[in-house]
């Protein structure tokens, strides 16, 4: 199998993995967002908690959870390996450099954006996933674990809301570059479709991230 490992340890192979896992993670974002929209239903969290119950007990979802974990793991691991290689490809830096003249900030700072998102992820998982799994959580009217109250409580702190919003902005920039970049990496470039892919990527990044950011803002300001 040496050809296999060689393929995925080449410069193109590694970024292929980043691209494939990245697109997979995009699909996760969509599912996650749609599910979380239940937060907005005016039923004091009954629908949301039912959804949470489903997500934590359905065997298919449980299996996908592992795939998702692997997706994150590969995405991050490969990105770190590539970034380190790339940093070492130029050990003497330019005294004067004007990259802003030839490229977008987000495209050059995927590592930084990714790190912000990663930190957010840890906080987010700790606050919801771990509390749900291992913490003491009250039950709602329907007898499901009441994750809703955790959300409401969390989003009443301004610093928590700020962390979420800033992270979603970072995610948006990460996606604006990452989404279309993944298609380029997969070789899916064509003058008919690429403009549409880029436009959709832009739209996607903003809508998804705005959707997520709307939740803490909603609870902070309106609830």
């Amino acid at each position: 199998m040496s050809w296999f490992t060689k393929t995925f340890s080449s410069t193109i192979g590694r970024k292929l993995l980043v691209a494939i896992t990245g697109l997979f993670l995009c699909s996760f974002l969509v599912v996650h967002l749609i599910g979380n929209l239940q937060l907005f239903s005016a039923d004091e969290g009954v629908a949301f908690n039912a959804y949470t119950y489903f997500m934590t007990h359905n065997p298919v979802i449980r299996a996908m959870e592992i795939v998702l974990l692997l997706g994150f793991a590969f995405h991050i691991y490969e990105a770190v390996v590539i970034t380190r290689r790339n940093q070492s490809a130029r050990s003497v830096k330019y005294a004067v450099n004007r990259p802003e003249q030839n490229s977008n900030w987000s495209s050059r700072n995927m590592g930084l954006l990714g790190t912000v998102i990663f930190v957010f992820l840890l906080v987010h998982l700790y606050n919801f996933y771990f509390k749900l799994k291992f913490g003491e959580v009250s039950l709602d009217a329907a007898g499901n674990k009441n994750l809703y109250v955790i959300a409401v409580e969390s989003f009443s702190h301004w610093w928590y809301v700020a962390l979420y919003v800033i992270s979603m902005i970072a995610l948006a920039f990460h996606l604006i570059h990452g989404f279309q970049s993944a298609f380029q990496t997969l070789g899916l470039s064509h003058k008919k479709y690429t403009p549409a892919i880029k436009a959709f990527g832009y739209f996607f990044s903003i809508v998804v991230c705005a959707g997520f950011a709307a939740m803490p803002l909603y609870f902070f300001f309106l609830y």
Binding site: T11, R14, K15, N86, P99, S103, S107, S181, T185
Partner: peptide
């Protein structure tokens, strides 16, 4: 050489 990250510079 480094790896391409589709920056476009």
């Amino acid at each position: 050489f480094g790896s391409c990250t589709n920056i476009g510079a």
